[in-house]
Amino acid sequence: MTSRTLLALALSSLLACHSHVDGTSVELVAASVAVDQLVDAEGRTLEVDRLELDLDLLELIFCEDGLARRMLRELLLPGRALAHHGSHGRPTEFEGPVTIDAKTGGEAVLGALEPPPGRYCAAMLVFGDARLEGQLGEAHISHALTLGTTIFVALDTPLELSSAQREGKLALRLDLRELLAEVDLEAATAESLAEALEAALPGAITAGAVAVEHAHTH
């Protein structure tokens, strides 16, 4: 082996030197109750073929970061909220859209966040589009809805992340079985259905956090 090869190998190994220590990580999951049927305000039953919600944004909110303080910060530092801080996004925000399939139900992984350590007590959810299809008697109903609604959900168990507790899991629990309880399906337009969904969603969603022990270096 020539000295030139040895030098090249030494330089390559030097430049390849890299180590990484994992940080915090929160897995986001949606746990929804399967919805096969929806009953409207008139007692009519919709056999659901498709019920999907697009989650456009989820933001974790610090316990000490009250809504008023948070809104003030967004007002004072609007650039930060929009600019996603350089080439990396806001670490407490998960950007979608990801689709939650409420017809099938069950637990589905939405994604993951790497937020800074702290205690999180709430989540802000922004839903975008929704799709509802089904059979109402002899009639086939199909609606593509635009929601754009924002919901604040208090976590029933705060999510705590620290150097000793780096991983966590946040579950959004959806029960949409009462989604159409205030709607007359035969008379409903896309707009009124969207309004009904926006009104029903806050009562249909809860959230809970579970921290898990896991940390490693590689």
Partner: peptide
């Protein structure tokens, strides 16, 4: 220049690397 860089992120992750 040859540099050893230690990058510590707010999420507690740390990267260390040697680069040109």
């Amino acid at each position: 220049p040859l540099a050893h860089r230690r990058l510590a992120y707010a999420d507690l992750s740390v990267d260390q690397l040697v680069t040109l």
